[in-house]
Design a protein around this nucleic acid. Structure first.
Length: 580
RNA sequence: GGCGGGGUAGCUCAGUUGGUGAGAGCGCAGGAUUCAUAACCCUGAGGUCGGGAGUUCAAAUCUCCCCCCCGCUACCA
């Protein structure tokens, strides 16, 4: 048994997350966590809302709430939606919690004591009307290169050139539209990453489990040379900057930069998890994070979208190494690409695409979980369309899996009654079936171990298909007329397949798997956590077990529904008639 | 602009230490079947592997040039 620590990138607090966010980190992490638990490992899956920063303050203002109220409310919403998707977090915390403030301040103090932090003075755009400093992208104006009049201070969306806010002509605040801006001096703490080049490089080179994309991105940063980076901001909402336990002189109205405290929240949320231990349960968060307190045997796996690799492989490790304390760092990383909305982008700010809360209004979580994982954007961006989604759901879930369960249970009831038939013995057909299944299960297992999710679920689907193929060949409906006991054995094998499919499918469609098991009056504890090979795959039900054929497991999505959703969500037209 | 990733069948994607006729699922066509959610099962058609040039006995795979999409580019998170 290994202890496996899993974190998924922290979802930002400003509203429900869309399907791209879900499949980019939280869902694959959940599937992996469920699989590893099934293999008997001691898994701790930690996530939290990422609450600090300018967008949270602005979103709160727009909602007419204080930022504290806004975040508390949004956190509760995200937590509830996560539960709706059956995301099996051991703890879903908040980066704004007291543990994170303490830990962030602790890391900053250690870094400063070790000579990795400096105070420096910058000049930055200040909006007099908004009474705040503006991050580069909140300054807009006319691009000096192409004349586009809505260029942002960091980059022009029209010509793609990188900009400095002071390059813009006719600059204005994108928050209020005010042109009453000035360049004002402000003091910030800098993390001296330049001095950390060698330790970070050495740390990275020792990592063997990083996928190619992650390595490429990290190498690029290291190759160009790390640059010192400011880790404070002129904001109200964030972790306060202290010096020797008191507000730091000159930093009374500043907080740590959200990207400094957010990764630390992985640790802080673990501490919060321990703090919520039910009576009688011991939870030692430090044994998961401190190499000197038991974490040397922990395997730490992170899940994230491709956009924030560098924060996890360069700046966060830099902060940890710079503390010169024995903290656990990441062992393996799973990086995902984007899910697109009809070839374009899902957008939180423009409310384009499908968001987690709305998705659950349309269909139960398992429909989405299966589609997203079986089509996960692993090697490249993937385009979501309702057409593709419905074809996957109808075919894989309804026709291949759901119909299998339905056909064998209903046939059994009509010919043998609602209990597993005991007659007849397994023959060569069943022996071949078991052999085939064992090979396929081993391929499925290997893919899950490697976090190759598309491959894994193509294998799982193949296993479901094998069930249908077996029934086709065994044809108990024909055999029943001449050799009822042979038919009984086939039906028993078929019913065992149903249970096997449920066990194997639990990581990805846990609710449906539980529904199948419940039809056989089985709970998770009554069946092996993971199938045991060695020829025993079809022997769990021995005959005489009663069951209730489950209702239709997965309803198909019909054309009428599809058309309605297309309109409701403003789906673009697509070319061709049978796309998907 | 720089760096990285990607471009393979109508759709969504596998496939690179160069090598027997380029794969899967969906969609499409035909067949078989009737236990089942008009489901399942079998067979088949369909691709000059983004474009061009080159290296090689041999290129989806290696080299060079070009086009398109995505990410990063250190103050969005």
């Amino acid at each position: 048994m290994t202890r496996i620590l899993i974190t998924s990138a922290l979802p930002y607090i400003n509203g429900a997350k869309h399907l791209g966010n879900l499949v980019g980190s939280m869902l694959p992490a959940d599937v992996y966590a469920r699989y590893m638990r099934a293999r008997g490992h001691n898994v701790l899956y930690i996530c939290a809302t990422d609450e600090h920063g300018t967008p949270a303050e602005l979103a709160a203002r727009e909602a007419g709430q204080t930022v504290e109220e806004y975040c508390a409310e949004q956190h509760a919403i995200q937590k509830e939606i996560g539960a709706g998707f059956n995301l099996s977090f051991d703890h879903f915390g908040r980066s704004s919690g007291p543990e994170n403030a303490r830990l962030t301040q602790h890391f900053a103090a250690r870094l400063e004591a070790n000579g990795f932090i400096d105070e420096r003075t910058d000049k930055q755009v200040y909006s007099i009307e908004d009474q705040r400093f503006l991050p580069d992208r909140y300054v807009e104006g006319t691009c000096p290169h192409c004349g586009y009049d809505k260029a942002r201070g960091d980059q022009c969306d029209n010509c793609g050139r990188l900009l400095d806010p002071t390059d813009l002509k006719e600059p204005y605040s994108s928050i209020s539209g005010s042109k009453n801006l000035e360049l004002k001096e402000t003091k910030h703490l800098y993390l001296l990453l330049e001095k950390m080049q060698d330790p970070v490089t050495a740390w990275f080179e020792a990592k063997t489990d990083f996928p190619a994309l992650t390595q490429a991105i990290t190498r690029k940063w290291l190759k160009e040379g790390l640059r010192d980076r400011s880790i404070t901001r002129d904001l109200y909402w964030g972790v306060k900057v202290l010096k020797d336990g008191a507000p730091r002189a000159g930093f009374e109205n500043k907080v740590f930069y959200v990207w400094f405290d957010a990764p630390i929240a992985y640790i802080a949320a673990t501490e919060a998890w321990a703090g919520e231990a039910p009576e009688g349960e011991m939870r030692d968060w430090r044994s998961w994070w401190r190499l000197d307190e038991g974490a040397q045997d922990v395997r730490y796996v992170q899940f994230m979208g491709k956009d924030n690799v560098a924060f996890h492989t360069v700046t966060f490790p830099g902060a940890i190494l710079g503390s010169e304390e024995p903290w656990k760092t990441v062992d393996a990383l799973k990086t995902l690409n984007w899910l697109n909305w009809y070839g374009g982008k899902f957008s939180t700010s423009q409310k384009r695409g499908i968001f987690m809360d709305r998705a659950l209004d349309l269909l139960p979580a398992d429909y989405w979980r299966w589609y997203l994982m079986a089509n996960a954007p692993e090697s490249d961006d993937v385009s979501f369309t309702f057409e593709h989604f419905s074809s996957v759901v109808n075919k894989d879930l309804a026709d291949v899996l759901g119909n299998f369960v339905n056909r064998i249970t209903r046939f059994c009831v009509s010919k043998f009654g609602a209990e597993t038939p005991s007659d007849g013995a397994y023959g060569t057909a069943e022996a071949d079936l078991v052999k085939d299944l064992e090979n396929r299960i081993s391929a499925y297992t290997a893919a899950l171990e490697a976090m190759e999710f598309r491959k894994a679920f193509a294998e799982l689907r193949g296993i479901w298909v094998v069930g249908n193929e077996y029934l086709q060949v065994a044809a108990p409906w024909t055999a029943f007329k001449t050799d009822p006991s042979a038919a009984a054995a086939s039906v028993r094998a078929g019913l065992n397949l149903v249970v096997l499919f449920a066990i194997l499918s639990r990581p990805v469609i846990p609710a449906s798997a539980a529904k199948i098991l419940a039809a056989f009056d089985l709970s998770n504890d009554d069946v092996p956590a993971w199938p045991e090979t060695g020829g025993s795959l079809l022997t769990l039900l021995k005959g005489g077990e009663s069951f209730n054929p489950p209702d239709v497991l997965f309803k198909k999505i019909d054309d009428e529904q599809l058309a309605k959703w297309r309109i409701e969500f403003g789906a673009p037209e697509i070319d061709g008639e049978n796309a998907g």
